[in-house]
């Protein structure tokens, strides 16, 4: 089966040919299958954001190709535009791109650009608002009267309303408090389940990707350095730390326990840790 998205030997240099030339991506290849939840991690400046902007055709690769459904997204102009809508990209701090007089109009901006008819636009706006928990009253309000977390969710709805097959989010929880973070992550899951969408999420929160992602991609210094399940990636915490990244705190606790001579499975979420230790306790009790 052709993967939903395939990136082949992608390279990109900013300001090529000037003294400020800067290689942002070098020979990056990976594939995304339908229905996957992929976490993208890497420190600032590792090339994550540049990579994301290639996936919906905002940036054109210097070398390499991006295939959507097996077709090069730059093969013809019409297809490039189509890709903008099939691959939805939520930028960092998306609330700063709100501009319409009402939340409704702002969410409708994307669907309108798709050339949909009024009835379909209305359906999509209301459905997208539903996914992110925006009420009907809020739809008629000015986006600038919403709270920080609500603005963020309204902005995400603007992308969701285009009903992209692949939803990409660049640090969707940055700067929010724990409750706001949870809400956004729940919204993403709701959309994913309802539409069978594929999701890629860039984040600095190891706890979040450990919990949510099926597969992780690790970027460092313009290269894709690691790729695998959370279990595989977090089994080598030292190499992550060397790249300036964190490991989930529970993984650290388990490593410390291992150092103290306890034999334990590798865990990376709280639930797994509790299950593993509860079993141990139970075992000890019955011994």
């Amino acid at each position: 089966m052709t993967p939903l998205l395939e990136v082949q030997n992608l390279s990109h240099t900013y300001s090529a040919g000037t003294p400020f030339a800067h290689k942002a991506l070098e020979d990056v290849s990976f594939r995304v299958d339908r229905g996957e939840f992929i976490g993208v991690i890497g420190h600032t400046g590792s090339g994550k954001s540049t990579l994301m902007q290639h996936l919906n055709g905002l940036l054109k690769p210097d070398q390499g190709r991006v295939l959507l459904d097996g077709k090069d997204i730059w093969s013809d102009k019409k297809f490039t535009r189509e890709c903008r809508f099939r691959v939805g990209l939520v930028f960092q701090y998306p609330e700063y791109q709100l501009f319409e007089e009402t939340v409704y109009a702002d969410i409708a901006f994307g669907p309108k650009n798709m050339g949909l008819d009024g009835k379909e636009i209305d359906r999509r706006v209301r459905e997208a608002a539903g996914f992110v928990g925006i009420t009907d009253a809020q739809l008629n309000a000015s986006p600038f009267d919403l709270s920080g977390g609500q603005k963020r969710r309204a902005a995400i709805a603007g992308i969701v309303a285009m009903e992209p097959e692949l939803l990409i989010l660049d640090e969707p929880t940055a700067g929010l408090d724990p409750r706001g973070r949870e809400e956004i992550l729940d919204n993403i899951q709701t959309y994913r389940r309802a539409k069978n969408a594929t999701v890629m999420m860039v984040t600095h929160s190891m706890n979040d990707v450990a919990r949510l992602a099926d597969r992780l991609i690790v970027m460092s210094q313009s290269h894709l350095v690691l790729e695998g399940t959370p279990e595989e990636i977090f089994s080598d915490p030292q190499s992550l730390v060397d790249m300036g990244l964190d490991v989930p705190e529970v993984t650290r606790v388990f490593l410390a326990l291992e150092k103290r001579g306890l034999r334990l499975p590798r865990v990376y979420t709280l639930d797994q840790a509790v299950a593993a230790l509860a079993a141990l306790k139970g075992g000890a009790r019955h011994a």
Binding site: P248, L270, L277, A278, K281, G282, R285
Partner: peptide
């Protein structure tokens, strides 16, 4: 913090 959350959850499991 995650470590406290872990201990708290384990206490519910008999620790």
């Amino acid at each position: 913090p995650e470590t406290v959350e872990l201990c708290h959850a384990l206490n519910a499991e008999g620790y």
